[in-house]
Design a protein around this nucleic acid. Structure first.
Lengths: 117, 117
DNA sequence: TATTAATACATCAATACATGATGTATTAAA
DNA sequence: TTTAATACATCATGTATTGATGTATTAATA
């Protein structure tokens, strides 16, 4: 898994969990590498999740009761299929609402101001 | 200067400099507290810059040659009026372009996906 | 008039997310 | 056969922002 980042790392901060929650609410079961691939494709290669970020956060979200997973053996390889818990669905709704509001606010503030007098 | 934050602190990461650059490109000269006030008003109280973030970053941006300032004495109080340098205008253009692209990408990824088959 | 809020700056240790480096191992492709 | 892709993992490091704390002036309010 190799990559070059499109955006300054700081901009991505706080968006990782919402992104994962969003992906998992569309496709009810996904494993880490699948999420990585999906996000990469959907963003036209602009958002490349780092495995050093992705796998730890999936573990954290499981620990927080937001996700659950089941291990599936594919040949000799193991996949962990993650899915939203009931709590996860709630958290998803809240996080996505907050993110949406944030995007709109920043957009308004930075690009839509300075109305001529 | 007291405050309550609307967004999880992480979401704001990477947006502070673009916000400041944007504000300063509209109003050519502003002092720290004025930027604080303007951002607060423009965002309907949703983005409250912290003085622990604002003043250090203004110093950093000056050190980086992005901003310059002049001190103005108002009675016994001192104000530092900041303004964009030539380099600052370039940096502004780049940062705002990146941020805009980022906002669009996240929006597309998280809210506009899952087209029906 | 006394006290609180607002104005205006500052410093710095602590926080926390994400990164980058590094590792293991299987499977497919060149 | 060697490289790339698949699939997971750990952990020290970086760094932007925060929160706490500080000084001091000026305006408002009780």
């Amino acid at each position: 898994m190799y990559y070059c980042t499109m955006y300054s790392k700081e901009l991505l901060k706080g968006t990782l969990q919402p992104i994962i929650l969003s992906m998992l609410s569309e496709t009810n079961k996904m494993y880490g590498y699948e999420i990585f691939t999906k996000v990469k494709e959907r963003s036209d290669g602009k958002i490349i999740l780092k495995d050093g970020s992705l796998y730890p956060v999936l573990q954290k979200m499981s620990k927080d009761g937001v996700l659950q997973f089941e291990e599936v053996h594919i040949g000799k390889r193991v996949r962990k299929y993650y899915f939203l818990t009931a709590k996860g669905s709630e958290v998803k709704r809240d996080y996505l609402q907050e993110l949406k509001d944030f995007l709109e606010t920043i957009n308004e503030l930075v690009y839509k101001s300075a109305v001529s007098v």
